[in-house]
């Protein structure tokens, strides 16, 4: 019998693991990612001549991610094209292949704060849309947000998302990613996990995007409010959170931060630099004119 070295053995595991797509309209190209729920491959839809992301689930339950995605038609949520079963019984579904940069990488690529915050706003819009359809993502993090080359933002990996208000796991079940999980989620209090838990994760994403140097106070206050320990102290909705970030970008007062009079003046001055310059120039002229005429 031929000796199979470690590298060959690992390769053969991948060969066995690779989905048998015979009988489907897809041709396997390469593996692009894997998680607890399954493996994602890049594949070609030979009938439509387009590339797709093919997610092969570990199990046969299609009641989860594919059905959730099928009901969420939004530019910020990856659409599902097709669902099927492999000859070995595993379920797969084909999704739009998102080509772009993951948010965590984009943040490290030197994108400006304003650009990062605009991506964040779009993320909030997509999350708010999902919430309006009763869907909670439960694993929002920069790695699950893709930014396309035209600035489009897509939220990925809805594998642990929940539909409806009822808990779908036993108490104590922890789903999510450390660092982005709300406290109630990290404690496995499944009946307390709701839209505000996603709001907490959005706050953690905002904090990540703001960076750790010279973060404006008003922006830090927004992420702090979103990440309040008590869900009741957080933003009521992802939409409200996105709106507060929009106000920050526009130089308007934000809900999360009560500014003093000097801070307000500084903000107004910063927001209306041209008007301030014109008024100052006008006043200077008047003073000079007054001095000149008195002589």
């Amino acid at each position: 019998m031929r000796w199979l070295g470690h590298k060959t053995l690992e390769h053969l595991r991948e060969v066995v693991e690779a989905p048998d797509l015979s009988g489907t309209k897809y041709r396997l190209i390469r593996e692009i990612g894997r998680g607890g729920m399954g493996i994602v491959y890049e594949a070609e839809d030979v009938e439509l001549d387009r590339r797709v992301a093919l997610k092969v689930l570990n199990g046969v339950d299609i009641s989860g991610e594919a059905r959730i995605l099928a009901r969420l038609e939004h530019p910020g949520i990856v659409p599902v094209h097709d669902v099927g079963t492999l000859p070995d019984g595993r379920v797969f579904y084909a999704m739009k292949l998102v080509e772009g940069t993951r948010l965590d990488r984009l943040a490290q690529s030197g994108a400006s704060l304003a650009d990062r915050l605009r991506v964040f706003q779009k993320t909030c819009e997509a999350v708010a849309f999902a919430h309006s359809h009763g869907v909670i993502h439960r694993d929002l993090k920069p790695e699950n947000i893709m930014v396309g080359s035209f600035g489009e933002v897509l939220i990925m990996d809805w594998g642990v998302a929940r539909r409806g208000p009822q808990p779908d796991a036993a108490p104590g079940t922890v789903m999510g990613t450390a660092g982005y999980m709300a406290p109630e989620q990290a404690r496995g209090e499944v009946d307390r996990v709701d839209e505000r838990s996603d709001g907490y994760a959005l706050g953690a994403i905002l904090r990540f995007l703001a960076g750790d140097r010279e973060v404006p106070r008003r922006l830090a206050a927004i992420s702090a409010k979103a990440m309040a320990t008590e869900p009741g102290n957080r933003y009521v909705s992802a939409q409200d959170l996105g709106a507060d970030v929009a106000r920050f970008l526009d130089g308007l007062p934000v809900e999360a931060y009560h500014e003093g009079i000097f801070e307000r003046l500084a903000r107004v001055a910063s927001r209306n630099q041209m008007a301030v310059v014109l008024v100052a120039a006008y006043l200077l002229m008047r003073v000079l004119l007054l001095l000149f005429t008195r002589r």
Binding site: G59, D61, G89, G176
Partner: peptide
């Protein structure tokens, strides 16, 4: 991620 992964009902041909 810690997934809810309790139903891996793979149905391989017997």
């Amino acid at each position: 991620m810690i997934p809810a992964c309790d139903n891996l009902g793979v149905n391989f041909p017997s």
